[in-house]
């Protein structure tokens, strides 16, 4: 028996916004540790990894590991029936062919009960190697969303460059070019600030498809800040923390010189 009650149901709604356009369906793996889902886009360019630890839920019970094969378009349609301040409970039997979703309004005067049919998804799981990243950059998530949107007007590639105390985003296309630089702020405890950490102070510059970066920014409402991790010739990691007990991470393969 699996049962997970999320007081802040909007977390699930927001997470699905950041997933549904990248992965049409996924295996949501439920264990005593929490819920995780990993999926790649069909062209093997971006990997999406969602982690919701058991502590994120006010009630969590998972007697045996359960796989919920969910169609994300359907899941999203159902979650849109929940209000932002609803409490959401997910329930499933041990070897489920359906999952039950219960929405309770904040003042408990409305309950909605949905059943979503599960599908068998034959999906490969990828092992993500531990990487020592050359640069770790934290920026306000809204700022990152805006930069990705603005630079997409210039071309299909965004170059992210990190040098000491500064991260630079640039794009070039037929209409012209653009370069947006964010300087590291003094006080990095504030969510509005920018922090730039570098290993060995070596500048690092990589090119990425703007289309995917824009997909990732659909998760903006999950967190005030977004973390970017770069390493030469490695996938970029874009992470949105979900409080202290969860995260939505994206891995994006770089564009390389032909």
């Amino acid at each position: 028996m699996f049962e997970a009650r999320l007081l802040q149901g909007s977390i699930l709604k927001k997470a699905l916004e950041g997933i549904r356009e990248l992965i049409t369906s996924g295996n949501w793996e439920c264990s005593s540790a929490g819920i995780s889902m990993q999926g790649m886009d069909p062209s093997h360019v971006a990997l999406t990894v969602l982690m919701l630890q058991n502590d994120l839920f006010d009630q969590f019970r998972c007697d045996r590991n359960v796989t919920l094969g969910l169609n994300h378009a359907t899941f999203s349609k159902i979650l849109k029936c929940a209000a932002n301040d609803d409490i959401i409970t997910l329930k499933a039997e041990d070897q489920p062919d359906e999952c039950n979703l219960l929405f309770q309004s904040a003042n408990d005067d409305k309950t909605s009960d949905f059943i979503i049919k599960l599908t068998d998804i034959d999906q490969e799981t990828l092992g993500i190697p531990d990487t020592e990243y050359a640069a770790t950059v934290k920026v306000p998530s809204v700022e990152f969303q805006r930069i990705c949107r603005d630079l997409s007007q210039f071309g299909d590639t965004i170059i992210i460059s990190v040098k000491k105390g500064c991260v630079e985003f640039s794009g070039t296309g037929e209409i012209g070019s653009a370069k947006i630089a964010l300087k590291e702020s003094g006080n990095v405890d504030d969510d509005e600030k920018v922090s730039v950490e570098m290993d060995k102070d070596t500048p690092c510059s990589l090119s990425f498809a703007s289309r995917y970066l824009n997909y990732f920014t659909k998760a903006t409402s999950l967190s005030d800040t977004v973390t970017l991790q770069l390493c030469p010739e490695h996938p970029l990691v874009v992470s949105y923390d979900i409080g202290d007990n969860g995260s939505l991470k994206y891995y994006l393969a770089p564009k390389i010189e032909e």
Partner: peptide, 14 residues
Amino acid sequence: SGKQSSLMSFFKKK
């Protein structure tokens, strides 16, 4: 503006 690489060249199937 560069060739798109695949994640499969970085990550291995489990």
